[in-house]
Amino acid sequence: MRRHEFLQAMHELTRPRTYVETGVHYGESLTLSRVPSIGIDPDFSIRRELLGDMQLARTTSDEFFARARPLAHLPTTVIDLAFIDGMHLAEYALRDYLALERFTAATSVVVFDDMLPRSIDEAARHRHTGPWTGDIYKAAQALRDFCPELIVLEVDTTPTGLVVVLAPDASRGGVLPQYDAWLDVALEPDPQRVPDEVLRRTRALDPERLLASPGWRQLPMLRRRRRGVDRAAVRAAFADVVG
């Protein structure tokens, strides 16, 4: 399954009220949304028809989320579905996640693109190949290491894999105390030491298996609970894939 097929399924299954995307590029993924949406990219060049209520922000995600009311365009300040596909460097991807997480609920879903490089060359911080993921796969490991309450699932989509994050924690306030120490270790020179489990995708779920989880049917219902829902309920809903 290709990444945009999977993302389209995410829109259909999660039935989001809002959608935010970092890294719009030509608009291939933004065009999948039919709900109020925000696309953030300092250099987008839209080549697809956008069919929803869209705000296009020609700026960096760091600048965008530093605004006083970054989600003013949306009908609610909760992001139900987000797609991170911006700068292909680990520190930018992790900052995008932390910025988006401030505006999530336990039922929100965040998807990272290009998380499973197929070679060390493809994972280089300095691009010298055609297809390129950079080293953003490190952002997923940082979330596993420092935020164990999150559900972080690698997905074996073509060509370069995805990561789906469930049960985000807005109370973190966009701050990861370990961020600076992580940078000192994570930002190593090329060639990158890509873990074997990333290159071989030994942890990655088959996308069809993940999409078949009954948890997706429960998310919209959990979202409608008047008293809200905690992350434990989301983890229980996806017990078949979380383990």
Rank of each mutant, 00 (worst) to 15 (best):
L50M: 05
L210C: 04
L94V: 03
R235G: 09
Q178C: 06
W216C: 01
L56F: 06
M1F: 14
L166Y: 13
E49M: 02
V109A: 08
P75I: 01
L94Q: 07
K138C: 01
A204W: 04
R67A: 10
I136H: 05
W182I: 00
Y92Q: 09
A232T: 11
D62A: 13
E91Q: 15
F44S: 14
P191G: 11
V241G: 09
M54V: 13
R217K: 14
H88D: 07
D240K: 13
R217N: 13
Q8H: 14
F103G: 12
L100F: 06
T157Q: 07
A66T: 13
T160S: 12
P70A: 00
I136E: 02
R227S: 12
P189I: 00
P148E: 03
L153D: 06
V163T: 15
P220N: 10
Q178Y: 08
P148N: 05
W132P: 13
D145E: 15
A239L: 03
G39M: 03
T59I: 02
D62C: 04
A105P: 11
L222A: 02
R201K: 14
T107A: 12
P148F: 03
H25P: 00
D240R: 14
G86A: 03
L50G: 04
V163N: 08
A105D: 15
L162E: 07
E28M: 10
L153Q: 07
D180I: 06
V20M: 10
D190N: 08
D156H: 07
S37H: 02
P16F: 04
L56T: 06
H25R: 15
R217P: 03
F65R: 15
M1W: 14
G174S: 07
R58V: 02
L7C: 11
A106T: 08
G134V: 00
T133L: 03
A123R: 13
R209G: 01
E91N: 14
A204I: 01
S61R: 08
P168H: 11
L116H: 10
E154T: 05
P159E: 07
R48P: 08
G228S: 07
G130Q: 10
K138F: 01
M1H: 14
D145C: 09
L187H: 11
W182L: 06
D184C: 06
R34D: 14
D114G: 15
T104H: 11
L219Y: 05
D43R: 14
T14C: 15
P131D: 05
A105H: 14
S33V: 02
W182D: 01
T31N: 11
G174P: 00
E12M: 06
Q192Y: 02
E101A: 09
S29L: 00
R118W: 00
L143Y: 05
L199Y: 03
T76K: 10
T157D: 04
W182V: 00
D145A: 14
R201L: 06
G39C: 08
D240W: 07
F64V: 01
C147L: 12
F146W: 10
S33W: 02
R69P: 03
A93H: 13
